[in-house]
Design a binder for these strands. Sequence first.
DNA 1: CACCAGGATGCAT
DNA 2: ATGCATCCTGGTG
Length: 116
Amino acid sequence: MFVYFIVSGHHISTPSPHRGPAPRQRQNIPLWQFIKELLKQADKFGDCVKWLDRSRGVFKVEDSSRLAKEWGLRKNRPKMNYDKLSRSIRQYYRKGIIKKTEQSKRLVYQFCTPYL
DNA sequence: CACCAGGATGCAT
DNA sequence: ATGCATCCTGGTG
């Protein structure tokens, strides 16, 4: 009688210490590019995020929880929410990728010129 | 209450 | 070291 222990190829992630699990997640894409992807498909994601001023890269998050859900799907992060997604957007401020508009409006952001 | 700013920390790449 | 994901304190309309 044989028993096969399938210890998959490389290594299964260790239990998971502190915050959140560590689900095997493939498919890497920066958040700002992901947002641009949705922006390109107004038909599918217009209720999620849409351009306010396409030429200036100004966009508005129409449905924050939906956007977070889509991002969570893409990154395989089931616990993703807008609070955390927006924190990542805020990290883009000092990197000069995305900024808040002049008269900062709720749920409205703007891509910095080199990232348009 | 939902959104916004940014520090701290953990983790995978 | 980079890019989040997560967590948190505190502030605004």
